[in-house]
Design a protein around this nucleic acid. Structure first.
Lengths: 289, 289
DNA sequence: TCTTTTTTGAAACAAACGTTTCAGATTAGC
DNA sequence: GCTAATCTGAAACGTTTGTTTCAAAAAAGA
């Protein structure tokens, strides 16, 4: 079946060779495209004022094996037109040497990233941004075995933008004393992907009991910590290996940083400049020794 | 059934009240919207990795009488967006969504990732994989202010696959003594993106002088450490914000992990299984208290 | 006009579909 | 650590769907 033209074009091109009833059908299809073609054979037949067999004979005549194939083709075309920018599959993927493990793996990573971003709830994202931008709230971050490095990265970057940002140590026995300094309204950012860690969850529950706002970054299977979380940001993290990918999580974190920066650019720039000066002075000291 | 929001919103709004399998389903639907929802119950179920009954229960839960009604609603919405000539050639996502910082940022991240991958030298990649797979060499990792978290992540994952993996502390004053244990032929993995850190570079030079193999993960402007590096893997890291993105670096690291795993799956699996057992025993221990 | 050919839809049919049931698996509560 | 409650998918079910058959209707050719 030739795919070099759209369904609409195919319909028009077939017009001359049509019989009376078929022409009625085609003209109805074209007149209400593509809404008219979404339904079943029966509904189309009724709307166009022809019988169901006519519809089937018609799609056969223009080259499809049957109505299901015709509809599949339509769905494909609609999908292309409806796709949001980040949902779109890029052509460049074809050019990569697909056989190399690097590219095989990377394509799956990109697929995860794409899905993560397109399913992200923007309101949740904005709400978390506002929480973190609120300087009256202290921010604490915690992560598991693999996610602690994400928490660390987030912390380092957040420090540039605001004060009162604390990364909890990787040793759970230091957490209870840390709770002493946390107040109601403070924010706890939790990173937890499978295999979810009981200690992290327990701590989140304690924090929640202290009226803290819990923000959870997790995977598509959702950490049990979700039960006490005010806001949940999920990522697709499954790749063909014994591990998962944290790329979508990092992308979310960096997007959040970017949004925070936009929300309060004045302060951020000042802090950045001061940090630069401090770094320079540090270097000066070193040289003087 | 309330029609005041789009299907997409309804899916998201229902998220909190969902079970595990239903979340997986909703996540798949949102991640590939609206293409994912055009097909039959069976195809959706298969693509999302759940059973057909789950799909039916799900659409019931969010307020439809059954799957046909759910699909009818989707068709209606699609029709609205596609029918009028004005919007005909516009994308599904409205301007508001495209303009959202998350999506603006994400598009740039994906672009960086794309460039990083297409520019990657596969021979270098393979050579680094072979170095890291060689168990006669110890592996040391080091990173700067922002990249230390990447080194940490890499270390944690590498530990699962092999022994003799060490992450250097974030305090430079601990590095000279650490050098004592490093031998010629050992591997030093350096992460260094702008602004390049003199201390990291100095250490890499010392390591190089000790006949160590230096592997450098850096950005497109290339860290000065490149002078002493045997292998260099570069990433595109520039995004529209005061920061850079480490996503391409993470993707490279994870691809490397995946390649390493493939190179020596037998050993890796054994280590994984042993690790699992240890974790279980730890949990058991905790429960017994 | 009458015959032949083509077109068309009602009815019957088979395949695919959405739905329900139920037992095993998982999770939550005590 | 056990029990109760909830969740989940395989299999069976009845329904809808697309398709085929066939005879009536329409059109074309004589």
């Amino acid at each position: 079946m030739t795919q070099f033209q759209t369904l609409e074009d195919q319909l028009r091109a077939a017009m001359p060779a049509m019989t009376r009833a078929e022409r009625r059908l085609a003209s109805h299809m074209l007149g209400n495209f593509p809404l008219s073609v979404l339904g079943t054979v029966a509904t189309i037949a009724q709307d166009a004022g022809v019988s169901a067999p006519t519809v089937v004979r018609f799609v056969r005549k223009i080259g499809f094996s049957g109505y299901p194939e015709f509809r599949a083709q339509l769905h494909e075309e609609m999908g292309e037109r409806l796709a949001s920018p980040i949902t779109k599959h890029e052509k460049w993927a074809d050019r990569l040497e697909i056989d190399h493990p690097l590219n095989r793996f990377a394509l799956r990573v990109i697929e995860n990233l794409r899905q993560t971003l397109s399913q992200q709830d923007l309101r949740t994202f904005d709400a978390v941004r506002d929480l973190l931008a609120d300087k009256s709230r202290s921010v604490y971050l915690i992560g598991g075995r693999l996610t602690r490095s994400i928490a660390e990265y987030f912390t380092t970057a957040l420090h540039v933008m605001r004060s009162d940002v604390t990364l909890l140590s990787s040793q759970p026995n230091t957490w209870p004393p840390a709770l002493l300094d946390m107040s109601a309204g403070d924010v706890l950012v939790v990173f937890d992907i499978r295999r979810y860690e009981p200690s992290v969850q327990q701590f989140a529950e304690l924090a929640h009991a202290q009226q803290m706002e819990v923000v959870l970054f997790t995977d598509q299977w959702v950490s049990p910590t979700a039960g006490v979380a005010r806001h949940i940001l999920t990522s697709q993290i499954e790749v063909p290996s014994a591990w998962d990918t944290i790329v979508p999580l990092i992308a979310l974190v960096e997007s959040m940083l970017s949004a925070l920066q936009d929300a309060n650019w004045q302060d951020t720039r000042e802090r950045l400049e001061r940090m630069e000066r401090f770094y320079e002075e540090m270097l000066l000291f070193k040289r003087m020794r």
